[in-house]
Write a protein that binds this DNA or RNA. Structure first.
Lengths: 146, 146
DNA sequence: CAGTTGTTTTGAATGACTCAAAACAACTCG
DNA sequence: CGAGTTGTTTTGAGTCATTCAAAACAACTG
């Protein structure tokens, strides 16, 4: 079923990246796929549910390896621990709640890429533009105004 | 002279923010004004030069207070410690070198503000857009290609 | 100049993450 | 399919940036 297919795809991705296929890696991939924007601790909590005994250190190792291999993307909004998401190749952006630190994806910015060309690069050879929006998530808006 | 005027302005700013004027705060303000994008340790190093005995903890306290008061701006690019700059009210952006972590200001983005309106905010009430560009600084370009 | 309040210092603690060595599991090849 | 090699996970300890708390102290108030 869906799950089995996911696993197979995950395996293929790991092999393609030259990484050995281990239960820990599959579990981490699963955990991150099942919920966006998790920190190492949250991933660990989920992994342990189906793979008790997995160490937090291993989760760090796996997250590091998968990120380096391009199977995961790591973001690090100011004030939050590193957060991992299953990256879809698109370079989407993020909104972070200034009150509760919830994170959501923002599909893209209106003006399209040209927007993200800085006017004066100060001699830097730029290869990526990262946009982070800050605001209040729906829940926090309610709690603040309510 | 210039320095004296700076001090006077700094004092005025502190008072306006309802903060007591202390030598440590003036020194920190000076240190950050004299060089952009310093982390707490770097600020401390500079402050200690003219005010020996100042503790790192005090520098943290001062940086926190000044940031909260809006006299400094704090940024935290992924992989770097918190960096402080004298904020000029404009919401400018930053370029970070992926090799040596050098940071430079980027005055603004070409397409102007409309650019930074996300297409779908996912229910968030957004109040700030922060753009971080990643690339190689001039020095690192030289070292890599040279 | 004395009192009050906010600030700095000292000392310790936390959280997120990294390092290193030993135990172990995946893939390879005969 | 079984041994070897190499990469992975575990265990245990360490680091760095930052924060917490209480005591010593300095700025503003009157």
């Amino acid at each position: 079923m869906g799950t089995a297919t996911h696993r197979d795809e995950a395996e293929a991705h790991l092999r393609a990246a030259g990484l050995k296929v281990t239960v820990q890696r599959l579990a981490v991939l699963d955990a991150v796929a099942g919920a966006g924007h998790l920190d190492a601790d949250a991933v660990h909590a989920r992994v342990v549910r189906e793979l008790p005994g997995t160490s937090l250190q291993s989760v760090y190792n796996v997250l590091g390896a998968l990120t380096e291999a391009g199977l995961l993307r790591r973001i690090e909004p100011a004030g939050s621990a590193g957060l991992y998401e299953r990256r879809i190749g698109d370079n989407h952006h993020h909104v972070v709640c200034t009150r509760c630190h919830a994170v959501a994806d923002v599909d893209c910015v209106v003006g399209e890429p040209p927007c993200l060309v800085p006017s004066d690069t100060g001699g830097f050879a730029i290869h990526t533009a990262e946009v982070t929006f800050w605001g209040l998530c729906a829940d926090c808006q309610r709690e603040v105004t309510g």
